[in-house]
Amino acid sequence: MPSDPESDLADLEKRLKAARGTGEAGRSGSGSGREGAASGAGIGLRIAVDLVAGVAVGVGLGLWLDSALDTKPWLLLVFTIVGFCAGLLNVVRTANQLEAKRKEDEAAARTNAE
């Protein structure tokens, strides 16, 4: 194919711009999103752990304060409820995080597809 110097130069300019573009994209994009590979079971276990950890800390705090302040069993009762609420808060935060990550991945997938 006989090459036309003018279109060759325009082509080169395009390729240079593209190379610069991928260079920048390579530096910012990629990475993260591997968490999306976590299966439903993985997410389930994660949320269960979040909830149980809150309750466990609440129960632990309640037992400790009860024995220290001699208020058995009232603080245990209160802190078990507080712990449950904290566990729910953990779950909500994790869910929000996962949701945000999912949206981000989706957006990334969409821009990649374009």
């Binding site: 276990l45 979040d50 950890a53 809150g54 800390v57 507080v82 904290a86 808060l89 953990n90």
Partner: peptide, 22 residues
Amino acid sequence: IPIELVSYLSRPVSLSVRIFAN
């Protein structure tokens, strides 16, 4: 504040239990 405090304190518990359990 108690809920947030307990939630904050539960971080090392959930962080460690998660990997240990898995």
